[in-house]
Write a protein that binds this DNA or RNA. Structure first.
Lengths: 354, 354
DNA sequence: TCTGGCACTCCACTCTAGTGAGTGCTGGCC
DNA sequence: GGCCAGCACTCACTAGAGTGGAGTGCCAGA
């Protein structure tokens, strides 16, 4: 291998493997085998797997080398090898290929989006179920952020005695609402007038941009209602609490792990919307598509891997898809499913908001 | 005990126990002990527990009788006793007392509702978290059913090229939306006119009552948009798919059970909104507050108990609270928490919708 | 450089007591 | 008749010994 020295001198050339073809094949075999069986893989199994045509002794020495280099580990002496996080990482980066959905899965995705219609939230919720079904992972779908969407309509609807509802429609079709307690009773006419002034005030800007000051109308009741409406708009910005998260197939975590406390800690994480959303964001920000084991820095998820896929509509990011599974998850399948569903979701959202 | 004979002659008088005081005390001790430790309870432990001052031999013979009568069972010979579903049932009906929240819990509930405001959905979601925290059970909160709420406002908001959003506000403050594809392009004026006609058509009736036929305006574009809006209103009734469900603290199931496949099957059930909602409804319909073990007929939940509490606003049912835990859940605590939170939630919803 | 062979390791499983918590029963006492 | 001390018995659980087998590392030879 005369090229090894050349390679080592280069600073991590892109696409380079650092492993000769046979070691790569062996690593591939160990990873795929282990993903399937969850059992440590011995040299004999590797030989039986396709792609390697040397004796088990040779495989053994290569596996020893792979272990020295940190790609594999042994649970104990005289057991087979299992991939380390580094091993999975190498597999994902260089060996896994793009993978593709099986025809059945493609069909399922196509049908899903052909029949998808109606409310976006419901659709995202179902998308998470679809992804979970396709991959046997827990799926997370983060809806489009409405931060930059302009206000398309504001309405003030009376609900009875001193109570009203501010209903805001954003340009991307999102609807926000907030109850307002009015300082004094107001009739339809007042509410309608105040709603109109509110609309004139907020239309075209984003929720966060809505200013505080509204020019007085001369009518105190209307002004009071308008002021209450403006306050409600500001409440909306805060209460919104970031993006919506839809989690599907959390029961899959209980299938993937047999230690019940692993399941518990993972579920605990999944219950914290904020944590999950920022986790996905962090992973994307570091430029990753897959975060394996400790790469994401959340300790209770050390035995998990996360596949992240941005959903973009016309080049603008409009959401995120995440798949959570054990580190021995089926990466090619998960990546393929995330990509396909992400693309289709993007198209779908694009159609809906054009 | 001179009264015992009197009682026995009456046909199942309400509040009657069917068990003499000592057996009841023993059953109570077994249930509370088992709830705490999850270990089969032996006669010695019962003696040490308060309320029983006879020898362990006597307790043993009583326990044998309780087992004969189906209140207790032995996992195997020479093990202690654990309560059967019937034992739990008797405990809940006659022995558990009403129970009450500890001061810390009361405080937590008070604070929660003092600070609760804003969107109702978000509030219900958080309520499920509160209940899970209080009881260490998985909490389910079903939102108010909007079926009987009259339409308070209808609006047609254009989202661009042939797309519009029908936004419906119901009298109870719920907001529904549905995207509509218009048969042809429509400008603001047309949408506004169509929205007005839609509103006049639907205002005051419930969504389900909205009729099909709208009197023509003479303007084909307006009529087309109006028709599309009416269709969207009908879609809403179907797509709504019943009530909203909020599940909190599903990780608690992984704490309660040590068999990972029990956890999995319970989580699988919890993912099916429809199943959960109708489950709670069924239990309420049979007049129960607690469904223990197989009483609810859902096989995978045979080792679970469910506490249900209707939430009523001014006497009208406006939602449901459910607590899901193992059959050895802390019934007094769960019942107390469900009652307190249910009441406060009802008051809160009442204030908001008055 | 690869391979067959060999000695070695150590988990997983089975089998065998031994232990202890718990029971049912019985005969005597109040 | 109800209660209780004592006793024999049951059976899950644990620890320890033995065994089989999957797997390893190393080495000598092609």
């Amino acid at each position: 291998m005369p090229t090894v020295d050349d390679r080592r001198s280069e600073p991590a050339p892109p696409g380079d493997t650092d492993l000769d073809a046979r070691k790569a094949a062996i690593l591939t075999a160990v990873v795929t085998e282990y993903i399937g069986s969850a059992q440590p893989v011995g040299s004999q199994h590797v030989v039986e797997a396709a792609g390697v045509s040397v004796s088990s002794a040779t495989v053994r020495s290569d596996m020893a080398a792979l272990e020295r280099d940190g790609y594999l580990m042994q649970p104990h002496t005289s057991a087979g090898r299992i991939p380390t996080d580094k091993g999975y990482r190498f597999f994902v980066d260089h060996l896994g290929g793009t993978g593709s959905l099986d025809p059945g899965g493609r069909q399922q995705v196509r049908q899903f989006f052909d029949h998808a219609h109606g409310e976006i939230e419901q659709m995202l919720e179902r998308t998470s179920g679809l992804l979970a079904d396709l991959t046997d992972c827990t799926a997370m779908v983060v809806g489009p952020s409405h931060e930059s969407a302009a206000v398309r309509s504001v309405q003030l609807v009376g609900l009875g005695h001193r109570l009203a509802l501010v209903v805001v429609v954003l340009a991307d079709g999102a609807v926000r609402k907030q109850t307002v307690e009015l300082p004094e009773d107001a009739d339809e006419a007042v509410l309608s007038e105040a709603g109109g002034r509110l609309a004139a005030h907020a239309l075209g800007s984003t929720l966060a941009e809505v200013g505080n000051v509204v020019t007085p109308s001369g009518h105190p009741k209307v002004d009071a209602a308008t002021a209450a409406g403006v306050a409600a708009l500001h409440d909306l910005v805060e209460a919104d609490g970031g993006d919506q998260l839809f989690v599907g197939g959390s029961s899959r975590m209980a299938v993937a792990f047999d230690a019940v406390d692993t399941v518990r800690s993972v579920l605990t994480i999944l219950e914290q919307q904020l944590v999950v959303v920022s986790l996905l964001r962090d992973i994307l920000d570091t430029g990753l598509t897959v975060a394996i084991g400790t790469e994401h820095g959340i300790e209770p998820l050390a035995s998990c891997a996360i596949v992240v896929m941005p959903v973009s509509v016309g080049g603008v990011e409009a959401g995120t898809i995440g798949l959570l599974g054990p580190t021995r998850m089926n990466y090619p399948l998960a990546l393929a499913a995330a990509r396909v569903v992400g693309d289709r979701l993007g198209e779908h959202l694009g159609e809906a908001s054009r």
